Amino acid sequence: MFAPLVVALIDGLGWRGGYVVMAGILAAITVPLHALFLNGRWSDDAGSQSAAVSKAEVRQVTRTPKFIILQIAMAMATFTLFAVTINIIPLFLQRGMDYSLAAVALGLIGAGQVVGRIGYPQFARATSARTRTVTIFAIGAVSLLTLALVPGPAWLLIVVAVLAGAVRGCHTLLQATAVSDRWGTKNFGTINAVFTAPMTFVGAFAPVAGPALAGLLGGYPAMAMVMAVLLIGAVGLTTRS
């Protein structure tokens, strides 16, 4: 939602001036809030009441083919969705949009994430874990494929980008509930930490990998095409999880 405001700062002050203003806001608002109001003391209640984690029980889940396949599929979805949506501005610039409109599109992707998260609980109640995972990944693949192949008009590309944002929003909750939906909540913290570790890595790597791949392939639409194909592969893997 702040992307259009950042563009306005850059247009008015240049990127260096925009950075200085944002650093000033961070120093004047965020730092004092953390210094004055963040509770630095942690309760010991949770630690005293938690049961010992059984390594054998954890391994019975984390070393199964179903767990590993689902983990790979979720990591692929994280990588592809992040690589395209976070780099939507240069993609749309190559589609002929101006910088301000592309920034608005990035902000609307964030709004789409919120919509996806609001709608996810109703969808989850009506579907099985596998069905909703396949469906969400398939919609994401179609949206990335459309962004890769369709040159315009701008409004259509923005609508598709918002749809991709909604898929990202659903994916966040899908990732958070994948373990509990399939293996319950026993040893959830340990099992879920193992499950989400690859997603954390690729989520941090994707914003850099997207531009690097676009440079190798000659443009962001080609990068989006590769990501769409990878996400289609994730759909195939998910049908086995």
Rank of each mutant, 00 (worst) to 15 (best):
V115I: 15
A166E: 08
D98L: 09
K66Y: 12
A178R: 02
S143A: 14
I139P: 06
G107L: 12
A103W: 05
Q122T: 14
Q94M: 09
C170T: 06
R182L: 06
A141E: 02
I72D: 10
P65R: 08
G152I: 10
A73P: 08
G169R: 03
G152E: 11
I89W: 00
F123Q: 06
T133K: 02
I68Q: 15
V84K: 00
M76Y: 04
L174W: 01
N187I: 02
L157D: 01
A126Y: 12
I68G: 14
V104C: 05
P90V: 11
A103L: 06
G96E: 09
A77I: 02
T64F: 10
I109R: 04
G110N: 11
V104Y: 06
S128P: 05
T85Q: 08
L145T: 08
A103T: 10
I136P: 00
L106Y: 02
C170V: 06
I69Y: 09
M76G: 00
A75N: 03
G112I: 06
Q94R: 05
V134T: 10
F137N: 01
A75H: 04
A178P: 00
A164V: 03
Q113E: 13
Y120A: 15
A129G: 06
Q94V: 13
A126E: 10
I89V: 12
R63K: 15
P151Y: 15
A138H: 07
S180Q: 03
L106F: 02
F137T: 01
I69D: 07
L70M: 11
I68C: 15
A126L: 12
L163R: 08
G110D: 11
Y120C: 14
A111F: 14
L163V: 15
V167H: 01
P121T: 11
I69N: 11
T146A: 13
I118M: 03
V167G: 02
L145C: 13
A102R: 00
R95L: 07
L149K: 14
G169E: 11
W155K: 08
W183P: 00
N87S: 06
I86V: 10
F92M: 08
H171I: 02
A154S: 12
V150F: 13
R63N: 15
G110C: 12
V150E: 15
V179H: 01
R63S: 14
S100L: 11
L174D: 01
G116F: 13
Y99E: 13
V114T: 10
Y120N: 13
G140P: 02
V162N: 05
A103K: 02
T85H: 02
V114M: 06
F188C: 07
G189H: 00
T135K: 04
M74V: 12
M76F: 05
L91A: 09
I69W: 10
A126F: 13
H171L: 07
T185G: 12
R130E: 11
W183F: 05
R182S: 10
I88K: 06
T127S: 07
I109H: 04
A129D: 07
F82W: 08
P121H: 13
S100Y: 12
I72Y: 09
S128A: 07
L174M: 03
L70W: 09
I118K: 00
L81Q: 08
F82A: 08
A111C: 14
L149M: 15
I118E: 01
A138T: 13
V162L: 13
G140A: 03
Q71S: 11
S180N: 01
L81R: 07
V150A: 14
H171V: 01
R63C: 14
L157W: 12
L91E: 11
I86M: 04
T131E: 15
T146M: 12
R125V: 15
R117M: 06
A105H: 02
